[in-house]
């Protein structure tokens, strides 16, 4: 029970960090693609989604493990 409670708390706190980070990366990509060429809307949107997804995959474990460490400290 205790482990589950702690786990849930960590997941929530982590999501508050990695979700904005990933969405920010996707948004940044969209902005850059819009400003730097004549990319179609589909390419910009698709690229933003792909960058967001990969950023999420990268940031999730990093952030989660840091939050876990800080919660244990």
């Amino acid at each position: 029970m205790d482990n589950e409670k702690v786990g849930h708390d960590v997941a929530l706190r982590s999501a508050r960090v990695y979700l904005p980070l990933s969405l920010g990366a996707g948004g940044l990509f969209y902005l850059a693609a819009t400003l730097t060429g004549d990319h179609t809307l589909v390419a910009r949107m698709g690229g933003a989604v792909w960058v967001t997804l990969l950023s999420l995959i990268v940031s999730m474990p990093i952030v989660t493990s840091r939050v876990k460490k800080s919660s244990r400290a």
């Binding site: 060429g37 390419a43 690229g47 960058v51 990969l54 950023s55 990268v58 474990p61 990093i62």
Partner: peptide
């Protein structure tokens, strides 16, 4: 795995903004 995903972002960005053209 994390390194590979970072690399996948870099590869995507390179070919999207530079390489393709």
């Amino acid at each position: 795995i994390l390194g590979v995903h970072m690399l996948a972002i870099a590869v995507f960005l390179f070919w999207f903004f530079l390489g393709y053209n």
